[in-house]
């Protein structure tokens, strides 16, 4: 019976490696990793039974679609005839399709302009709220209302505010002598409008995450800084900012990943227009799969999106290992 023992050793090494990689896990799994119980048949069966319902879902709705999508991306299939092998044809066509590059550009615009604004404003509001403000809960509630509302509803509300003729937004701008802005009807203004709505909807979310991160900064650091005569600005840059940088980085990466999946807001607010100025990658997946019934082509778009998500996930893993402030 040498095998079970070595298995446990392997498991322990894996566990230790994992702990090195995910410090969050290590703080929680203390007693569990040193247990050297022999693998017990009854426990094994129980383990698989407990896991089974979830595992079925995991296999059917995660592993199968991931593999299926990859295989489909190398084939032509219109749902009626049987699929035919296409090699890299879908990818070749995709990279020659100007709409793809346009959608990729729009999606990147949405992500790389929208996310920094979300992060900076979310952090700014969180810092303001955290500085002994009375009514923290009230403000948090107010800023969080758009977060719990559906993107569809929020987009409809804003569509009305953006209206060129009866919209409140241009009316208010008029008070300050600003000419009406063609929010949703000009290709130049459509994406900024979409970003504005996403910012309005998402800022409370970021604020709450940063509030949680700020609570994790030990108070004694500020005390010693004050003794050294650091002003608030210096305290922020030398204590707060480095201490919350892992959260900031994590939120930035996940927000970018989420932004690359933008679909609801552009579909309802602009329908991808005008002149495809707000057409996004996921809208393209939807369009090619369910309007044109090109399942293979749509899957190749999905895999390009998967590649983008993967790059950011790996960046996340790489940098979170390097960060020492955990």
């Amino acid at each position: 019976m040498t095998e079970p023992g070595s298995n446990v050793k392997v498991a322990v090494t894996i566990a230790n490696k994992r702990i090195a990689r995910y410090p969050f896990v290590s703080t929680l799994s203390g007693g569990e990793r040193v247990s050297r119980r022999k693998i017990n048949r009854k426990e094994t069966i129980a383990g698989y039974l407990f896991l089974a319902p979830n595992m079925v879902g995991f296999l059917v709705f995660m592993v199968f679609p991931l593999v299926g999508s990859l295989l489909l991306s190398f084939s032509h299939w219109n749902l009626i005839q049987s699929p035919t092998f296409a090699g890299l044809d879908n990818y070749r066509q995709l990279f020659e399709n100007p709409l793809f590059w346009q959608s990729l550009k729009n999606t990147a615009y949405f992500a790389f302009v929208g996310v920094p604004l979300q992060i900076i404003l979310g952090l700014f509001l969180a810092v303001l709220l955290y500085s002994n403000i009375k009514g923290l809960e009230f403000f948090r509630t107010v800023y969080f209302l758009p977060v719990v509302s559906s993107t569809v509803a929020v987009s409809l509300m804003w569509q009305w505010l953006f209206d060129s003729h009866t919209g409140l937004l241009n009316h208010v701008l008029g008070w300050f002598g600003i000419n009406p802005v063609p929010w949703l009807v000009s290709p130049k203004w459509a994406m900024p409008s979409v970003i504005l709505v996403a910012l309005w909807k998402g800022i409370g979310y970021n604020m709450v995450i940063f509030l949680a991160a700020l609570k994790g900064v030990p108070e004694h650091l500020y005390e010693s800084a004050r003794i050294d005569g650091a002003n608030r600005w210096q305290q922020f840059w030398n204590i707060t900012f480095p201490m919350i940088s892992p959260s900031t980085f994590f939120v930035t990466i996940t927000s970018i990943i989420n932004s690359f999946q933008v679909f609801d807001v552009t579909t309802v607010l602009t329908g991808g227009g005008p002149a495809n100025a707000t057409h996004t990658i996921v809208m393209m997946i939807y369009q090619y799969a369910f309007d044109f019934f090109r399942m293979g082509y749509a899957s190749s778009i999905a895999y390009v999106l998967f590649g983008i998500v993967l790059i950011f996930t790996l960046l996340q893993l790489y940098f979170s290992k390097k960060w020492v402030h955990y």
């Binding site: 383990g47 995660m62 199968f64 489909l72 997946i285 799969a289 749509a298 899957s299």
Partner: peptide, 27 residues
């Protein structure tokens, strides 16, 4: 519970946590 393959399966779950549903939509 301890059973063979537990850590491997858990790593699988962790690895797919970031995968958006838009990618699995067509299949």
């Amino acid at each position: 519970l301890e059973f063979p393959g537990r850590d491997f399966l858990f790593m699988g779950y962790l690895a797919t946590m970031m995968i958006p549903r838009q990618i699995t939509l067509v299949p």
